[in-house]
Amino acid sequence: MEYVNTVGLRLDGRRPNEIRQLRAEMSTLASADGSATFEMGNTKVLAAVYGPREASNRAQTDTSKATVRCEYSMAAFSSGERRRRGKSDRRATETSLAIANTLEQNILTELLPRTQIDIYVQVLQADGGMRCAAINAAFLALADAGVPMRDSVAACAAGYLDGTALLDLNYTEDGGGGPEVAVALQTGLHQVLMLQTDSKLSMEVFEEVVELASNGCRAVAEFLRTTLLAHVGRLSLATSIAKSEA
């Protein structure tokens, strides 16, 4: 299959350095302390945050900082073929750990001793880049829950097909057999929080792909910031807190 045509366009009509359309909705679940849905093209992810709350297992309470836990799962209807996965889905467990690890580094856990923050992420539509979409959704949900964090976080993946570095692969491109690198950045501090890949790739290609993914992260971060500002603006409009000091 040809992933980049002669005009330089990809299967879904994007250019190699374009991300898919981003959409986000805040506070979508009433019962959670914070929640958000995040869409990258046809990939749609729902994240819910409970906490900071008293640790459910008192023996595991950390007296110096908060414990961050994450549970990532794919809805049975999320992919083309309906599948029933049990609790012991190893891929999901690995992704859960990656999300928890990435976000824990960003949360000011030392400000919340003896507490626990639970992040539940569910993939509603899977079309590639779920790990990154999950991190973005979870970041929005944490922000919605008022959890103090070091910096804004954004995640985006990039791959390499047909001799071209491609940003934000979709499901078809993901199955193309080329390498894919997922990157999560603290965009203000310019720190890498996560960098994952399952394949071997040469030094030059790696640098090109990571650079492209980082640019994608910065674009996503800008979108997340706009979403957050709009959300806070709406809430303060309702509660009329942000009165101007005229």
């Binding site: 909705e25 979508t28 922000a143 964090m149 070091r150 910096d151 804004s152 603290q186 965009t187 203000g188 501090l189 997340l224 910031r225 957050l228 500002l229 806070v232 603006g233 709406r234 303060s236 409009l237 309702a238 009329s240 942000a242 009165k243 101007s244 000091e245």
Partner: peptide, 29 residues
Amino acid sequence: VAAPRTILEAGLAEAPSNLDSTRIVSIGD
């Protein structure tokens, strides 16, 4: 789900705006 959001924006946007957008910040700003 989006209903409360749209209703709020439509209804309150016209009310005397006590919203000072310069005081609204995001994480890392």
